[in-house]
Amino acid sequence: MQNTIQAVGTGIGVGLGVAGIFASSYPLIEKPWRLPSLQHPLLPPHPFISALFFSFVFGGGLGWLAWHLTKCLLDKKLRQKK
């Protein structure tokens, strides 16, 4: 349970950090929202959507990495005790 809480905390912290950095470098509120049209089919996503996406990706990825590394270290310690 403690390891899961640690991994979730790491993921949330990293996700908020990435979103904060991304949000501070883009004017999220002032940029108009445009939907793709026939004239511009490949518009880049709104910076808010990008910040949200990257915060989930990095937060989830590093949270999983923290969980996995903690699990591996604990398994290694358990094997050494036997």
Rank of each mutant, 00 (worst) to 15 (best):
M1Y: 11
M1P: 04
Q2C: 10
Q2V: 13
N3S: 13
T4M: 13
I5N: 04
Q6E: 07
Q6A: 07
A7T: 03
A7W: 00
V8P: 03
G9A: 15
G9Q: 13
G9I: 12
G9E: 14
T10G: 02
T10C: 05
G11V: 04
G11E: 00
I12K: 05
I12Y: 07
G13M: 00
G13T: 01
V14Q: 01
V14M: 04
L16G: 11
L16M: 15
L16F: 15
L16E: 09
G17K: 00
G17W: 01
A19Y: 01
A19H: 01
G20S: 04
G20Q: 06
I21E: 02
F22M: 13
F22P: 00
F22Y: 14
F22K: 01
A23D: 01
A23G: 03
A23S: 12
A23P: 00
S24W: 06
S25R: 09
S25E: 08
S25G: 06
S25V: 15
S25F: 10
Y26T: 03
Y26H: 08
Y26S: 09
Y26F: 15
P27R: 11
P27F: 08
I29D: 09
I29S: 14
I29N: 03
E30G: 12
K31F: 09
K31S: 11
P32F: 12
W33P: 03
W33L: 08
R34I: 09
R34N: 13
L35M: 13
L35Y: 14
L35Q: 14
P36S: 14
S37H: 10
S37N: 14
L38D: 06
L38E: 07
L38R: 09
Q39I: 05
H40I: 06
L42Q: 07
L42K: 14
L43N: 08
L43T: 10
L43Q: 09
P44R: 08
P44H: 09
P44G: 05
P45D: 12
P45Q: 14
P45K: 12
H46F: 04
H46M: 07
H46I: 04
P47V: 01
P47D: 02
F48K: 01
F48C: 04
F48D: 00
F48W: 06
I49V: 09
I49G: 03
I49P: 02
S50Y: 02
A51H: 00
L52Y: 05
L52Q: 04
L52M: 09
L52C: 06
L52A: 12
F53N: 03
F53I: 07
F54L: 10
S55Y: 06
S55D: 08
F58D: 00
F58V: 02
F58K: 01
G59A: 05
G59L: 01
G60D: 06
L62V: 11
L62P: 00
L62Y: 02
G63Q: 00
W64Y: 12
W64R: 15
L65Q: 09
L65A: 13
A66I: 05
W67H: 09
W67E: 03
H68Y: 12
H68T: 08
H68W: 08
L69Q: 11
T70D: 03
T70N: 08
K71V: 11
C72R: 09
C72N: 14
L73N: 14
L73I: 10
L73C: 11
L74A: 12
D75I: 07
D75A: 06
D75P: 05
K76E: 15
K76I: 05
K77P: 03
R79M: 07
R79H: 13
R79T: 11
R79W: 11
Q80P: 02
K81E: 14
